[in-house]
Write a protein that binds this DNA or RNA. Sequence first.
DNA 1: AGGTAATATGTTACCGCTAAAACGAGGATA
DNA 2: TATCCTCGTTTTAGCGGTAACATATTACCT
Lengths: 341, 341
Amino acid sequence: MKRKTIKDIAKESGFSLSTVSLVLNNHPRISQATRDRVMAVVKKYNFYPNSSARGLASKSSRTLSVVVPNLTRVFSDIYLGELISGIYERATSQGYKILLDIATAQFVKTQEYAKLLASRRADGMLFIASDIHADYLGVFEDSPYKFVLVNHLFPGKKLNYVSVDYAASARLAAEHLMGLGHRRIGLIAGTNTFTGLLFRDEFLRVCKTWPAGPAQVSWVDGGEEWSQRGGYAAAAKLMAQTPDLTAIMAANDRMAIGAMRWMADNRREVPEEVSIMGVDDIQLAAYVNPGLSTIRHDLYQVGIESCNRMLQLIKGEITECSDLLPTSLVVRGSTAHSRLS
Amino acid sequence: MKRKTIKDIAKESGFSLSTVSLVLNNHPRISQATRDRVMAVVKKYNFYPNSSARGLASKSSRTLSVVVPNLTRVFSDIYLGELISGIYERATSQGYKILLDIATAQFVKTQEYAKLLASRRADGMLFIASDIHADYLGVFEDSPYKFVLVNHLFPGKKLNYVSVDYAASARLAAEHLMGLGHRRIGLIAGTNTFTGLLFRDEFLRVCKTWPAGPAQVSWVDGGEEWSQRGGYAAAAKLMAQTPDLTAIMAANDRMAIGAMRWMADNRREVPEEVSIMGVDDIQLAAYVNPGLSTIRHDLYQVGIESCNRMLQLIKGEITECSDLLPTSLVVRGSTAHSRLS
DNA sequence: AGGTAATATGTTACCGCTAAAACGAGGATA
DNA sequence: TATCCTCGTTTTAGCGGTAACATATTACCT
């Protein structure tokens, strides 16, 4: 049986092509009676308009491209899960679909990022996968393509972004630890993203310029994957380097939990001997023992908001965006007053 | 600046519309000289053909729909990660893109699954999200739409599938435990999927019909989410019900690890007092202490293979498929001879 | 009643590409 | 030399919609 088209619906319902089209697009200038009669035929044949034809005529694919990092276990990363869920939720509610891509070497080499938008396969791109080496994204500066960095930013490049305010997080964390009297602090940083660098620098700055007296902060890299394992190793390194530190700040909860693990394995009491703090407030943070003090990052919200901005860019309601979403301090059991103060 | 079209390329390169089209589609009947001259212009303008127009004319969107379950932490589930990575890898290598959907209540209610294919937004659908209640999938029986269940199956429905052989896994697991002399066994089952039920039934059957003497197997449900937490609770329940059991079989590794956790918390030695076994062979299985004996399920391969089948269905090389992929026993430290034998 | 405005529907010109069929030029065949 | 292939390219007819514009109908004034 031949696939039905809008023409068949028009013929059978007795209206013209464009009337059917208007009905299908919920145009207000169609009478209820007409709408009902057309819809009856549409329902009868279970008709759905061809999206390619629609896309061609309307110059919009109603599709958003989402690019995620090429980590081994991309989808097992809760960080991504929250972001994607937020994006999906928002996109779907506005009738947009999500086209998924992974920023593999191949993806970059074949310039899929450009192709996707140039071929109008997607109306815009939400990019979750940037690290400090993703300079090919420069093509989107001043380009007509709709592009938003999700929870990242590129200092020096004119790219739209929606991100958690990492500098604010660094300040909150530093103020919390400094306020508890810590003056010998170890920092487990993530250095392969600009937001990670931003966090590190702001944290160091606040600690070193603290009015009531600066702290000595030594930092190490927690590794590319920001993993528990990386945090464990980093904690070991920090404690070997500076055995007398009273607090460890990790750039995310997973590394913080790795550090707590090291403390447990090496009979250091948390928080009595060493306070430990993370960033993100992943679910696990509340379940470890003691509960992990952290900075809450609402990534689901980042997903929602970045998709919102994308939709506004597409509609032309805005021409650029650079949003920093607020974060908040969550105090649990893993941080306490410095034993030295 | 106006967006370039194939017509512009044709004009500038001095060839006709269709020659350019043929070049862009790598048609063999185009001379190298022509190809080069056309491609030079294509490169010059960074031209990519409009995919809607292409889809309309060629009646193919070169897009596959992937539907994942609506779990709270969908993307944090390594199970899905492997599947999606496999699908993505295969699809991308053949020039197909992935359209992501989540099987929310909304998705089902609005019949997005039908709409996606009827509107030709996707050429086929890979469905990862089926549970025993997804009977709306019946619409795809004998339909012209390309549909494949990924790592699931629907007894009684004529739906294509590519899945790991759960019955074979059940046999391997049962044979391993029975061979170690266990005759009082607890089973933590997953009962919200047909494959879970299949596994349970086959496991029970083998244990009860074992030639060297049957085992007593009591089973409990590990919960909807097949989670570590569910496994923990299930283990507690099993041990309260049948304190003298010597082995616990869990329908996946996460629940098995939850059960191991319970044993550790309650000072039961694994495997000396109770052997524990899982299914899947997730990465963590090798890292817990003792290492978890399990049945290896290569989900990445399931992803690859199901996408392969989908592509064959689309090309018309096959008209249906029902593949069961082999599994294998992985013995680590968590299983040992029964203390009673 | 005649003219105008508001509302509802129809006409038509594309949107940018593919693919089947047509075409022309040169070389092989007889 | 006329006929037939073959190869490489062009012609042409859509693919199935959208949206601007045209038109018809009815309502509303004065």
